[in-house]
Design a protein around this nucleic acid. Structure first.
Lengths: 164, 164
DNA sequence: TTAATATGTTAGATTTATCTAACAAATAAA
DNA sequence: TTTATTTGTTAGATAAATCTAACATATTAA
C-alpha cells in the first residue's frame, strides 16, 4: 500500500517525528501532537494513514518509528525547510519565529526548480567576501533601514585612478 | 455575516474573479472553474460561501460581481502574487509557468513581514546600476551556470592603484 | 420558434483533517 | 500493590472542498 505523494499534512507528521527523534531519541504520540498543535486522537489517526503507506512503524502504545522510506521523505522535507529558513533569516532577516512559520507553509509545495535556484542564490550571496566585492547583505540591510545606498567603492576607486 | 479571514481556497476564487473581470470584462461560473481546474458545481458552492460573507454579489445564472470588500481582498492577493512572481522570475529566473504555480501556493499564507522585506529586496537588487556597482543578477546568472564568480572589479582596481 | 447545445444549480457522496468524549493501557505515586 | 495520573485509542461528529449525476435555465442555430 504505497503512495508516491503524501499530503502536506502527512509530511508535517513525518517531519515532526524526525525532529522529536533527533531531539529526544524517541517520538511519542503526545509530543507529536504538541509540536503540531493537534489532539492526540488526530495523531493516532494520522499514524494509521502513515502506517498503511509504510512510512512509519507503530505498534499500539509504543514509540513511533520511521521506516526507511519515511526517513528519506522526512529528510527531504527538513532539507527544504532549512533552505527556506536560511533565505528568510540570513538574507531577508525575518524574525526566526515568523521565518519558521513561513518555511513550514512553503516546504511541502514549492517546485524543485525553485529550491535548486534558491540554494544557489543563498550560496552566491553568502560567500560574497567583504572587501573583495561589496557585501550584499550589509548593503541590503543599510538600504532597508535608510532607503539609501551605501557608497560605491568602484566608482570611488575609478575617481582616484583618474586623479592620479 | 462577515468573516475576517477567508481560507486560501476562497481567496483563490476571489482572485480568479478579479483576473477574469480584468481580462474579459465579466466573470462567469464556467471560466472561474476552468481557471481553477474545478467543476462548475464547485464554483457555485464556493460562490454561495463568498456571497454569505459579502465578498461577491451573484444572482442565479448571472455574472459574478465582487463587492467592495471582495475587490479589496482580491487586490491584496494579486499584489502579493505579483511580488512573488517578480522575485521568482526576475531574480531566481524560474520558468514563468512554474513561478506562477509557486506564487499561487505562497500568496495566501506568507507573513506580512516577509512580503515587506521581499519587496525591498527586489527593489534593492533590481535598481543596482550596471557599471556603477556590479550587476548582481548577471553575476548570479553566471555563477548559477558556471559555478564560478565573475572577475572582481574592485580587486582589480585596487591592484592598479598599488602598481602606480 | 422550436430544438440542440452550453451553462449553471442542486442534492447527495466522498475525502481529508480535525475535534470531543468515552474508554483502555501504561506509568508513577501512595 | 492498589490507586491516581498520564498517555494512547476508538467511535462518531463536524467542516471544508471537492466530485458525479440529475435537473434547470440560457443561448445559439436550424
Amino acid at each position: 500500500m504505497k503512495k508516491n505523494k503524501l499530503s502536506s499534512n502527512m509530511e508535517d507528521y513525518l517531519e515532526a517525528i524526525a525532529v522529536l527523534k533527533a531531539k529526544n531519541g524517541v517520538a511519542r504520540v503526545r509530543d507529536i501532537g504538541k509540536l503540531l498543535s493537534v489532539k492526540t486522537s488526530s495523531v493516532t489517526s494520522a499514524l494509521n494513514t502513515l502506517s498503511k503507506n509504510s512510512f512509519v512503524a507503530h505498534e499500539r502504545y509504543g514509540y513511533v518509528e520511521l521506516t526507511k522510506e519515511g526517513e528519506v521523505l522526512a529528510q527531504q522535507v527538513q532539507r527544504r525547510h532549512d533552505i527556506l529558513i536560511k533565505f528568510l533569516t540570513d538574507i531577508l532577516t525575518i524574525d526566526p519565529k515568523i521565518a519558521d512559520e513561513d518555511a513550514c507553509k512553503m516546504e511541502h509545495t514549492l517546485s524543485p526548480q525553485t529550491f535548486q535556484k534558491l540554494t544557489k542564490f543563498i550560496e552566491f550571496i553568502k560567500t560574497c567576501p567583504d572587501g573583495q566585492r561589496p557585501d550584499w547583505l550589509k548593503s541590503f540591510d543599510y538600504h532597508f533601514k535608510t532607503g539609501r545606498r551605501r557608497r560605491c567603492k568602484i566608482r570611488e576607486l575609478k575617481q582616484k585612478l583618474k586623479m592620479l
